[in-house]
Design a protein around this nucleic acid. Structure first.
Length: 611
RNA sequence: GGAGCGGUAGUUCAGUUUGGUUAGAACGCCGGCCUGUCACGCCGGAGGUCGCGGGUUCGACCCCCGUCCGCUCCGCCA
């Protein structure tokens, strides 16, 4: 089992050295360095580790800035008596002199390893019982345990750094937006449920028994209303709530950087947001992101990468081969190649011949999760030998000419393995798209890179199996077709003015140009099967507002947790949230959710039903 | 809603294949020794509801059924 903590990526955060404001100390432990050699310092912190050599005690003292080694010599009798009795995680204050370590005692693995602090006084501020998890240990701890004792878990330097990084990220984002004329405006947490979208978290009303507030899934409608109020550049770092099943990159409450602008076209807002990300990466990670970000259409993303959030770090692509297999004896391929709704695609993996039969079988199981009924493959051993130079269970269905054409199409080289899936368009794209990421990871093709891009030109609507239409982004997104009659006549033909910012395979944010014409908004609702009456009931406030002078407006929302996760090199957003929930939306620390007193329920007019 | 993996000492794990004496290790903890360690070292010691419930069996950490919890994924998440 994969343990939750990711410790692999070392994030170099550009952190200003801050003077502690507490009167008990003069410096942070992690900031003590050779520049202040021979100075007297007072430090406060937690005992990270004690090494008692009998006649000499070493203390690794830790605070949020880092760790420094303190030496206590028996000549300082009082200090030594206290030091001898120290244990891990005791909170102490020490005063002493910063001294250079002799050359042979420098610790190159430690940021403060060139110096140490010779203690003249050690003061015990708080004892600690043996801990349920070890802060200084190299052992991984189960995530449930970490969450139960999160306040201790957060002491671990890796976690502490993540939370600090999160602060700097939020600070830089705010600072960029402030400099660009954005106003930070708050919106309600107690609002109303809307029929579309995710399941709501509900809050019962005491004053209106039987009625409920909903916690916001996003401030979408409020930020649009703020545009109508004339605030023209708005942002907010805001908590959002969706009661859906969780994932490594999904929490029931998550933080969005929510942005909306008036009088900007989509290109301008995208440029502004790109620059915000470049500025953020430059200032916090000292990484320069490309300018401009590459921009690809949804269609192209699905064709080439099998995903609407492609990881461009992976040098593998999907290649359509319907024309090359349509005349083969492989009936499945030939059938799908003739079917308009189907797709036959290949993915060439350089050096893939080394994959064992078992590994290929595992990939077959892997793609089955996405609906693929099989995974065909060809190993290219030696192109010069023709059919004799390949190894494949499906080779027998191809004559040598067909095989040659097929291999030419995928630009096969010796040592390649080529995978194939033939099925409905969605299944082929998604399964090979997922396999692309899986193999990229397994074969170590990814590396430490940053690959941002925009995905644009999403379809406005897509059709469900029952024939009804649903939206791709949200129902306030403007279609490219601005004529309501034409939109209604052929909903599937229109693209949306939506855009997603994607980095390293994660969707960091998504937004759109919004509808500001009430007629068009009604038409979109109509396509979605929301009649005028329901639209007025559920969205009346917004529809009415469109009639009182509404500027053209466009916006975007970023997942702050995901941005920080990707920057921290973490594999779960839980590692960048101070107090996250488990995958069943519970909190082992507080035991939330919990039952409440019957009296509380009565006050709210709520009666529980037996299952 | 579904699938997979996991749950054994304070912590991380081994032991389960093929049921059989007293359930082991490392770290941590307790006691002792130790003046240059930095995952300090050495000697000794304590510590277990094998997630929970039921079943099979002479006998269950181990096999079977159910259940709870955690993680990952599919569905879901505009």
């Amino acid at each position: 089992m994969k343990k939750a903590q990711s410790r692999s990526v070392v994030v170099i955060v550009h952190v200003k050295k801050i003077k502690p404001r507490n009167n008990m100390r003069t410096h942070y432990c992690g900031n003590v360095d050779e520049k202040i050699t021979n100075e007297q310092v007072a430090l406060c912190g937690w005992v990270h580790k004690v090494r008692n050599l009998g006649g000499l005690v070493f203390i690794d003292l830790r605070d949020r800035a880092g760790i420094v080694q303190v030496v206590v010599d028996p000549e300082q009798a009082e200090a030594f008596t206290v030091a001898e009795k120290l244990h891990n995680e005791y909170v102490i204050k020490i005063t002493g002199q910063v001294i250079a370590r002799p050359d042979n005692m420098i610790n190159p693995d430690m940021a403060t390893g060139k110096i140490e602090v010779l203690a003249s006084d050690v003061e015990l501020l708080s004892r600690a019982k043996p801990l349920p998890l070890q802060v200084s240990d190299y052992q991984e701890v189960s995530e449930e345990h970490r969450l139960k004792y999160r306040y201790i878990d957060l002491r671990r330097p890796e976690m502490n750094k993540n939370i600090q990084l999160r602060h700097y990220v939020a600070q830089e984002l705010r600072s960029y937006l402030n400099e660009n004329g954005f106003l930070e405006i708050e919106t309600p947490m107690l609002t109303r449920s809307t029929p579309e979208g995710a399941r709501d978290y509900l809050v019962p009303s005491r004053n209106y028994k039987g009625s409920f507030y909903a916690l916001p899934q996003s401030p979408q409608q409020f930020k649009q209303l703020l545009m109508m109020s004339g605030f023209d550049r708005y942002y907010q770092i805001v908590r959002c709530f969706r009661d859906e099943d969780l994932r490594a990159d999904r929490q029931p409450e998550f933080t969005q950087l929510d942005i909306e602008t008036s009088f900007l076209d989509e290109k301008t807002i995208q440029d502004l947001m790109e620059e915000m990300m470049r500025s953020l990466f430059r200032k916090t990670l000292q990484v320069e992101l490309p300018k401009p970000f590459p921009r690809i259409s949804y269609q192209e993303a699905m064709q080439r990468y099998g995903s609407d959030r492609p990881d461009l770090r992976i040098p593998l692509e999907l290649i359509d081969v319907a024309d090359e297999v349509v005349n083969s004896e492989f009936r499945l391929f030939a059938e799908k190649a003739k079917d308009d709704k189907a797709r036959v695609a290949a993915m060439r993996v350089p050096n893939g011949v080394k994959l064992s039969r078992k590994e290929i079988d595992n990939y077959t199981v892997f793609v089955a999760k996405y609906g693929a009924k099989g995974l065909a493959w060809i190993k290219v051993l030696d192109l010069d030998q023709g059919m004799a130079g390949i190894k494949s269970p499906i080779a027998k269905f191809f004559n040598s000419n067909q095989m040659e054409v097929l291999l030419a199409k995928v630009k096969a080289e010796n040592e390649d393995i080529i995978f194939f899936v033939a099925d409905d368009f969605k299944i082929v794209s998604e399964s090979l798209g997922a396999l692309r990421c899986k193999i990229g990871e397994d074969l170590g093709l990814i590396g430490e890179k940053w690959a941002p891009l925009w995905v644009v030109d999403f379809p406005m609507f897509y059709q469900l199996s029952d024939g009804s239409w649903t939206f791709h982004h949200h129902p306030f997104t403007s279609p490219t077709e601005l004529d309501p009659q034409k939109l209604l006549a052929d909903p599937g033909a229109s693209l949306s003015k939506g855009y997603d910012m994607v980095m390293n395979g994660s969707e960091l944010g998504g937004g759109s140009v919004r509808i500001h014409d009430p007629e068009l908004q009604f038409a979109v609702f109509q396509v979605l099967g929301i009649d005028a009456e329901e639209a007025k009931r559920e969205f009346g406030h917004l529809l009415e507002a469109l009639n009182y002078g509404c500027p053209p407006h466009a916006g975007i929302a970023f997942g702050l947790d995901r941005i920080v996760m990707i920057m921290a090199g973490a594999t779960s957003i839980r590692d960048v949230i101070a107090f996250p929930k488990t995958t069943s939306a519970s909190c082992p620390l507080t035991s939330a959710p919990a039952t409440v007193a019957t009296a509380q329920l009565q006050e709210l007019g709520i009666k529980l039903v037996e299952e």
